[in-house]
């Protein structure tokens, strides 16, 4: 016998249960969780290294990559607790895998858990990991037209980080178009310009994190 079943449920309903469980766990802990999303080579690991150097607060990292533990090795040098997830070809992380990885991190003794997602501007933006917010990274050599080409990431992130600004003099990066496009997609998200070689711009990133850590602690623990 045939019948029509009305569902009106999210395609990701199954995985969203894991994301909700992570969010609840972190709320109780008062732990801030940030999902870093950007292309391969845009500077996600460098951002974490600079955050370790300048931040002054303890954090842990879950590294998502298709293969190798090179990013985890880079961060181990900074004495940061890090777990590497290899997705073996998978183009994004999912909440069920993240939840397992969290078990092996000392989350009660850190202020922030960063997820360095697989380098990709599409799928990682679509899978909720239970984070407090997503940060979209774009490096200047990738081109100023990317926000409109990958609108979901830029519309659903709470902060946009433009990295490698030291290269701007060598590129024809249209800054006005970039900031206008980001504003169209996401009028309230701050756009931070970061230069890892001089350290310029990181003060805003660090103070944004410190503020969010304070808010999160005030509501948890």
């Amino acid at each position: 016998m045939k019948k029509i079943v009305t569902l009106q449920q999210s395609i990701m309903a199954e995985d969203e249960k894991f994301a909700a469980a992570i969010r609840e766990e972190n709320r109780k802990r008062g732990l801030l969780m940030v999902n870093l999303i950007g292309s391969p080579g845009c500077g996600k690991t460098t951002l974490l290294e600079k955050t370790a150097e300048l931040g002054g607060f303890p954090f842990a990292v879950i590294e998502g990559d298709l293969a190798t533990d090179r990013d985890a090795e880079r961060l181990a040098g900074w004495d940061i607790p890090v777990v590497q997830i290899n997705t073996a070809g998978g183009c994004h992380l999912e909440a069920n895998i993240v939840q397992k990885a969290m078990e092996s991190l000392p989350l009660d003794s850190v202020d922030v858990l960063f997820i360095e997602n697989v380098g990709n501007l599409v799928c990682p933006a679509e899978f909720d990991l239970g984070e407090d917010f997503k940060a979209a990274l774009l490096s200047t050599p990738e081109g100023a037209d990317k926000p409109l080409k990958y609108p979901y990431l830029f519309a659903s992130s709470q902060v946009v980080l433009l990295t490698k600004t030291d290269l701007l003099p060598h590129l024809s990066f249209d800054m006005e178009m970039f900031t206008e496009d980001v504003k169209k997609l996401n009028p309230e998200a701050p756009v931070l310009l970061l230069d890892a070689s001089s350290g310029e711009g990181y003060d805003r990133w660090i103070s944004l994190l410190q503020e969010r850590i304070r808010e999160k602690r005030a509501h948890g623990r």
Partner: peptide
Amino acid sequence: SPSRETLAGMELEIESLEVEENP
């Protein structure tokens, strides 16, 4: 104002199914 809510445009939903079941 820059302050807005997104009411629609982000959906990824299974709306309905046609299924067979044993009588």
